[in-house]
């Protein structure tokens, strides 16, 4: 594997994503500038300037015309992906933690953090309704939680959303019936859910948690199907689009490393078999924990973002492409 190493961020990465065709890579970090890159040669096209704090999440619409960023400066911004202009700004009283587009690209969901008297919230806004996209606009879906919502994701068209919480709880809401969650799973994880990613065909969810496991979930009822155990907190997990493989990335936080008796390390990305729940391969590269990762739609590339501020685009070689899992 001859990886590309992209240095466009000054601080730790928080999210990398591919667009639908996989030719662009979107990344954001704890500095203020989300970036967009060509996946093929690692060329940076531009940065979206305007945020005033750490950018926690970025998402791109299906047609790669818009992208949305959630930031610690209490705003969610929607950008023109091609020109880098800010189209809309959504304000709130507390930092924004995650954001995502719906399947059609018309709805934007985001979660806000719990802070002093403000509860953690999950909101959805419609980009087509101009009254929702102005300063002081109201979301058409609004839900409050006592515990921090860490990640949110549209899991079925424009109707169902799944929210992961700091306590390990997972909840699924139907936007057409906003009162109560339609599915709840509180036993899948014991600690914070760090990442939720959908499989490319939309039939599975994978959740990564700080309890050193990642779980494969049924997208329709949040039932746990498989569990993948690691030796380190899992910060991100992704599913291969064309093979039964799972990739986990994680590692101890920098501030925790000196407090553990075990030597530091284990910053590799690990590849597991989806069905047999066993690790069969690993590759290293980052000097520090892996904070986020995404699998390319072609199945031959994985992008990882690390605590060291680098994005690595790893293209698999023949060893992996020719590998068959013997059981």
């Amino acid at each position: 594997m001859r990886p590309l190493s992209l240095k466009g961020h000054e601080r730790a990465l928080t999210r990398v994503r591919f667009n639908r065709e996989g030719d662009l890579t979107f990344s954001c970090a704890k500095d203020k500038k989300p970036c967009v890159w060509y996946t093929e040669n690692g060329e940076r096209i531009g940065s979206y300037d305007g945020h005033n704090g750490a950018v926690w999440d970025i998402d791109v619409s299906w047609d790669t015309t818009k992208c949305v960023t959630a930031s610690g400066d209490l705003t969610v911004k929607i950008w023109d992906a091609e020109l880098g202009n800010c189209l809309y700004t959504i304000n709130h009283q507390t930092p924004m933690k995650s954001c995502g587009f719906s399947y059609s690209g018309n709805l934007v969901c985001f979660t806000t953090q719990k802070m002093t008297k403000n509860l953690s919230t999950f909101q959805v806004r419609d980009l087509r309704d101009s009254s929702q996209m102005v300063e002081g606009g109201e979301s058409f879906f609004y839900s409050q939680f006592d515990v921090n919502a860490t990640t949110a994701l549209f899991t079925q068209m424009d109707d169902l959303v799944t929210i992961g919480f700091e306590s390990g709880l997972l909840q699924q809401y139907d936007l057409r019936n906003p009162d109560t969650p339609i599915h709840t799973n509180e036993s899948v994880h014991r600690y914070s859910v760090q990442d939720l990613q959908l499989s490319p065909r939309g039939d599975f969810l994978i959740s990564a948690s700080r309890d050193k496991t990642a779980a494969l979930l049924d997208v329709n009822d949040l039932k746990k199907l498989k569990q993948y155990k690691s030796e380190r907190p899992v910060n991100s997990a992704c599913i291969s689009p064309n093979r039964d493989h799972i990739c986990l990335g994680g590692g101890e936080d920098a501030m925790q490393v000196t407090q553990t008796s075990v030597s530091a390390g284990h910053f590799e990305a690990k590849i597991y078999h989806m069905v047999f729940e066993e690790e069969f391969a690993r590759f290293k590269g980052h000097f520090g924990p892996i904070n986020t990762m995404a699998w390319h739609p072609s199945g031959t590339i994985i992008a990882t973002g690390g605590e060291d501020g680098y994005i690595r685009i790893q293209e698999f070689d023949e060893d992996y492409l020719g590998f068959t899992y013997d059981f």
């Binding site: 001859r2 698999f316 060893d319």
Partner: peptide
């Protein structure tokens, strides 16, 4: 912003 990093081998456990 862009450079090709060192060759990385995938270890099969």
């Amino acid at each position: 912003t862009t450079y090709v990093a060192e060759e990385v081998d995938m270890q099969f456990t």
